[in-house]
Amino acid sequence: MTRRIRVLSVMLPLALGLVQPRAAAAQSAREVMEESQKRGQAASQHYEGLLQVVDARGKISDKRWIFDRLGSHGRSRAVLTFMEPPEVRGVALLVVNHPDRASDQWMWTPAIQRERRIALQDRSTRFFGTDFSFEDLEERDTEQYDFRAIADEAIDGAACWKIEAKPRTGKSSQYTLSYVWVRKDNYAFQLVENYARGALARRLRYSRIENVQGIWAGRVLEMTDVRRNSRTVLTLDKLQYNLPMKEERFTLQALRRQ
């Protein structure tokens, strides 16, 4: 049975594995990823995010959103609704993840009462001026990646597996290669580096990794756009799992009714 890694918005597929023999090492990396996904699995997720974009000149702009996700295993639906600043209140993003293909994404703009589809071609663009791209909001299928264990390394004092993740042929991604550091003690992600055409494009660092309702998760995520020399810090407040949520909330009609 195909097992997938579900990565919430700002997480990329990771893999872990040990080396030698070669086949066994790849399997071990996959096992790490599967274990990580298993430990992060929940029927739903809710948090209030504080997004701080720090540009190259050090200027900081704050935004707040509420994030809700229903489902898992690549069949999830998520709604991200901006709350602040007042000019963007009500702007929402609906993400419908699919197990076998890229997600569908729509943005809802209340001021003109219109939704717009975020085209697949646009997934590599920046997510509303942050350092995340739309693609970074997707869930990924482990079957779409090849994993290879690279080394054991300590990040911020925590022992980690460093795993290389390469999209398989046919997988559409702006990234040609990712390195993922997975903590050995709780299988949580510590660091992800994404490469495009051989050059480091984005770096995602997890901090304040805490156990919330039995799930280990980073509460502060810092995405750095290496080429632009800017970073975005996302702080997850009021993080909760397995809250009851209605499926009707995660539709375009629901967005229009907002």
Binding site: D55, P85, M107, Q121, D122, T125, F128, G129, R228
Partner: peptide, 27 residues
């Protein structure tokens, strides 16, 4: 959200010089 793949809105510097806040721009 996707037009910059076809058009250059600023030839000299980063995006932030073009739009003060892309989300506010769209909203």
């Amino acid at each position: 959200t996707g037009d910059r793949s076809l058009r250059d809105y600023d030839l000299e510097s980063g995006d932030e010089a073009v739009i003060d806040d892309p989300l506010v721009f769209l909203a």
